[in-house]
Nucleic acid binder design. Sequence first.
DNA 1: TATGAATGAGAATTCATTCAT
DNA 2: GATGAATGAATTCTCATTCAT
Lengths: 225, 225, 225, 225
Amino acid sequence: MSVAEDREEASGGEGTPTRERARHDKRERILAAAVKVFAERGFYNAKVSQVASEAGVADGTIYLYFKNKDDLLIETFEDRMQWINERLREGIVEERSALENLRHFMRMHLLLAVHARDLAEFITVELRQSSKFVKEYKNTKFIEYLNILASVIIRGQEEGVLRPDIDARLAARALFGVLDEVMLTLVLARKQPTEEQIDQHAAQVEQLILGGLLAGNPAQAAPGV
Amino acid sequence: MSVAEDREEASGGEGTPTRERARHDKRERILAAAVKVFAERGFYNAKVSQVASEAGVADGTIYLYFKNKDDLLIETFEDRMQWINERLREGIVEERSALENLRHFMRMHLLLAVHARDLAEFITVELRQSSKFVKEYKNTKFIEYLNILASVIIRGQEEGVLRPDIDARLAARALFGVLDEVMLTLVLARKQPTEEQIDQHAAQVEQLILGGLLAGNPAQAAPGV
Amino acid sequence: MSVAEDREEASGGEGTPTRERARHDKRERILAAAVKVFAERGFYNAKVSQVASEAGVADGTIYLYFKNKDDLLIETFEDRMQWINERLREGIVEERSALENLRHFMRMHLLLAVHARDLAEFITVELRQSSKFVKEYKNTKFIEYLNILASVIIRGQEEGVLRPDIDARLAARALFGVLDEVMLTLVLARKQPTEEQIDQHAAQVEQLILGGLLAGNPAQAAPGV
Amino acid sequence: MSVAEDREEASGGEGTPTRERARHDKRERILAAAVKVFAERGFYNAKVSQVASEAGVADGTIYLYFKNKDDLLIETFEDRMQWINERLREGIVEERSALENLRHFMRMHLLLAVHARDLAEFITVELRQSSKFVKEYKNTKFIEYLNILASVIIRGQEEGVLRPDIDARLAARALFGVLDEVMLTLVLARKQPTEEQIDQHAAQVEQLILGGLLAGNPAQAAPGV
DNA sequence: TATGAATGAGAATTCATTCAT
DNA sequence: GATGAATGAATTCTCATTCAT
């Protein structure tokens, strides 16, 4: 998993860069293991010792990097959502139209099911748990996700291509609902979907979201934009 | 709660109808308690003893009606989804157009957040868990839900009001995703939404799903269909 | 151990006397086991599972009767000190002179080392721990012990047999210190002391406390009071 | 704290005296930290890492100087009791009468509560633990303490000022019990006692121990001997 | 020597489930 | 059927101790 490879690579000169690096690497190994194990078994069925052994560390080591099991969930979530948000933000470029950006966004979201299956599964299943039952956790990274999506929609509304009478935040939420649910079906399927299958799903979702379900809507005319 | 009142009413001639009835009532009390407790704390944080005390029965009694805690979750889910599916099916009437039926469907789904808040919360949060982690559980009632929704869409496609090029099953899934996510936000909000608020959300969802996000689509012209 | 035999014997009529009784018996068995195990190994080296197996119950059962291990220590202490205080109070009778009562008190204290060796060891070693390190624990039963002893001394001062210029509370504390320390040596000795040995020690302590270390003091004249 | 300064100062010719000295200093820092931390939290609640950080060394360093946590307790105890015994022995001078020496002894013991509060607390609370539960530990330094005290008493008996009919070893033990218990109350009090308060307590203890509790004893006549 | 990250054995506690009443 | 006390397997987390650097 390439998730965190490119972060903090410029750890600078002072201190003990090697030590820093080692610490960071181990943390990352634990996070990757957590994504995998939580995805496979769900947070509550997953044992800390499974995460540890998947990460190749001792049980106790987990607790050098995370306060407790809940904290491990939160941190894993934050870290991975952060990474996802960064990828999504990178995918949104000024030069493209809002519509193109939106389409790209949807496709990228769904592609997680291929390129980072564990992560997709983890997000898909644990997001609600973490939001709802882990005490005192304001899910800022997910809010950030929604903001990124909403801002693309708002851009579209400003450009006049997206209808202005739908609340952008609600639309973002709804769109996330669609993507999340579709990704869930992809992820629950026994076998890994191919990139083409994802593309087909993406195209249909696009059609639906942009053109709506009603017959005779313009979007139908330009499926391949 | 009238949820399961009409099942098993035809207990036949044999045995003691009163005893049957009593048995049925106690089972129902446990189910209602399970919905409440699971909604409040989540399945894994909920204790069997909490469900028991909420139901006003002894811990051991739970096991006279359900095999184990997992089974209680499944049964609760099946029972309540069954009830929801029945309500939704009742709401779909031949005399109305497919479009009207679809709109009605969406509204009914969201109204759960007002009329059966615990249930809404329960479905919203536990559905994924139960589908994914409870071993060997084919979630037939949820599939049924999707079938009901898909059949309405297919009717619409046959009537020519809904676009034929989108897979009805995918559309059903996507629509469920939207409704579920919107209901989640309603349900996580501190205070109970009013019926008007639900109506507003329903209208926006309708706009979005039927008319699509693109500007200039026909659905906008007829918001009050 | 006869410690709690005679308490609550009249459990009254209402409720479920048998259930009450059973509950009380099991609690008592756990307390007795705790005294034994804590005496043998000390609180911190003792395992809850050792107490459980000594009591002949499952580990989890302990937690039906006590909040946690700390609570078990406190409750054990309270219960046993209560019993000791009751015995001591019974031993103080109006008809006897304060001096006789005081002598009797000292002897009874030391006799614990014979008649309830585990208890003696427990008190001797754990009292300080519980007072000092168990958070928020006001050691009321020990204060009660000191009050009983102080009241005997005050009686003696009022009767004119004990010197009035020593603070009774300090004297009680000091006397406890002597008795506790002497009991500690008795209890640490490999073999169980006989009642005669206790009597000898009691006589010496009496001499020392009443007559003082100085030569030529009156107490010497009446060693056998 | 000058506690162990004068030991090993004659490290002879071989090796590097400076290194010896350095080693000795670090050991002393750890001992001082142990006294402080054990006094504050008790041996079993104290973490080795807390001692290390209090001493300003790494956790692992502790194990270069002590075999394990138990050994640290024993060594701390031995070292500090050694120091106390030295101070007490210095305070006993041939020129003074046994009575004066005894009074001085008591006062010095209690003054620990002012001049070395952590140490007083440590001794008061941990002595019993270490005697009783640390395997195979013959508490020689404490026996030495008792011997010092007993020898003063024996001198008194020989001089004819102390009554001969009380076993000196038992008297020493009893006297320690009083001093230890009184020191415990001083040390548990929220605020540090003043030297005057100590003197008052010492005077009362003296009265009690020398004159006894009985009224009309000679010691009353000469409180200020 | 000194460090402190890593280890992993060990312990308290929880809670689904059973079963004697 | 109903009860709820008792069970004990299972799990999280701690912390003394080690050892590569």
